[in-house]
Design a protein around this nucleic acid. Structure first.
Lengths: 254, 254
DNA sequence: CTCAGTTTGTTCCCACGTTCACAAACTCCT
DNA sequence: AGGAGTTTGTGAACGTGGGAACAAACTGAG
């Protein structure tokens, strides 16, 4: 078990207290960056598993996941020592361990709020159900949509939210409404006891402590690409100019 | 005017050389984390602008964008000195400067490949067109879908890709196909000269140097939420156990 | 003009994340 | 058994990012 530890963090600057309340003492603490990659590793392992590959090296798995092998090994080391030196990783075993660590070995009931174009796409998305996420309700505030069949469910009234959340013990909510409705929906979800929210609406949500929000913003992703694309073109332009011309252009733009 | 001054950059820590070769010397280098936030600031400024607010402080803008004000000021400082001390930022002016820096003051033709549920949602998404992104083609390899109207376009054959890309000088492609088709589509896009790709398919794309890929993966986002959700529950469980019991449980699971 | 009040731009420092490089631990062959 | 070859797990160096704090630069009142 290598009780050593040490080296991590090192300076307990703002901690000191810590032991105050109850738990929180060990805080196994898998870094956030690692958590974000675990699902990628899991998918790569599932692919290998489907191809009936029993064992793989960190190099192979890293290639399948699109990362550097040293990073992969360090990431996996936060979970424990699940590999064998000189051999590699057992695909099925590692797959199970990662799935357990992420929590996808259990069933997660999910509600989707806002059944427009995106909501339809989400409701039909097979990637949800295949990873332990079960859509228990599709909610919309527009009465014209109530009762409409979608996937293996029917669209229901957003007013039924609280009943549904309590009945199915829902912890995760997906917001796919227009931006102007997102904060209201979010507040309602939180009030019902939902503590994790995936937000597709282009708006900043404010939530109380203890509630996690992740946002997916299509427009922002495109803008980031546009920025880099613009710089690629600018690099060409810069090559076409001599240094004095660059200096002149800089002054001009100021 | 403030001709001289500058003061940008400040600490030439690891630079020193820099002046060596031709271009690449200045390399204004906005940090990636900052680039990812600029679209958020832009959206916040547009909201303020719509409310006819002429000026705002870093504190106000930071609140609207959901970030810390020191971080916001530092981010903006990479673009230049666009604020006035003791006053704040001119909303319209800053809005324009950020839009120009990101590149959304110009028009970006975009093709979407794979018109399933998600492709439909993307084609109808207003956030694209409102930020300078113009969808010039919706492509799918399924002949049954060709000619189908969607938004203000018709679905066309994927085989037309090269013609369309050359005709409209498309630099950005969106992949919304099933996972198994994504790498092929990606290769075709790259071969036609597309250098920025937004990938919605749950697969790792490999591209040559110089091509940017960003991925949006709904399933991964949910899994990250599930991980944190699981730990919240685990915290409760831990509270219910005494320390020896925790130790026992840990050993057992290993 | 001067002074008090306000807000930006920047510096400094710490925490986090990435990568290299290598010892430890395993397999396989002779 | 022993040694060569392979691959993991991790220590250490490096780079990036975040936040507190403060000097610089502005406004406005007297």
């Amino acid at each position: 078990m290598t009780s050593g530890r040490s080296s991590r963090g090192g300076a307990p600057t703002t901690e000191g207290v810590s032991r105050t309340a109850s738990a929180k003492a060990p805080e196994r603490g898998i870094p956030e960056a690692t958590v974000a990659r675990l699902p990628v590793y899991l998918r790569a392992l599932i692919t290998l598993s489907d191809r009936e590959i029993a064992t793989c090296s960190s190099e192979e798995l890293a290639a399948a996941a699109g990362v550097n092998s040293a990073k992969l090994r360090k990431d996996l080391s936060y979970l424990g020592s699940y590999g064998t030196r000189g051999v590699g990783y057992d695909v099925e075993y590692l797959r199970y361990q990662i799935a357990r660590e992420i929590g996808v070995t259990q069933d997660w009931p999910v509600v989707i709020v806002g059944i427009g174009n995106l909501g339809h796409a989400l409701a039909n998305y097979s990637g949800f159900s295949s990873r332990g996420f079960r859509i228990v309700a599709l909610l919309d505030s527009d009465p014209a949509r109530h009762g409409e069949p979608l996937g293996d469910r029917f669209i229901r009234d957003f007013a039924d939210l609280e009943t549904i959340v309590r009945e199915h013990d829902v912890a995760i909510g997906v917001i796919a409404t227009p931006a102007h409705a997102a904060q209201d929906v979010c507040d309602r979800l939180v009030a019902c006891g939902v503590t994790s929210i995936l937000n597709f609406a282009p708006s900043v949500l404010s939530v109380p402590e203890g509630v996690d929000v992740r946002k997916v913003d299509l427009s922002i992703e495109l803008q980031i690409l546009a920025y880099h694309e613009q710089r690629k073109s600018a690099a060409y332009d810069a090559d076409a100019l001599t240094e004095p011309e660059i200096a002149a252009a800089v002054v001009e733009s100021a």
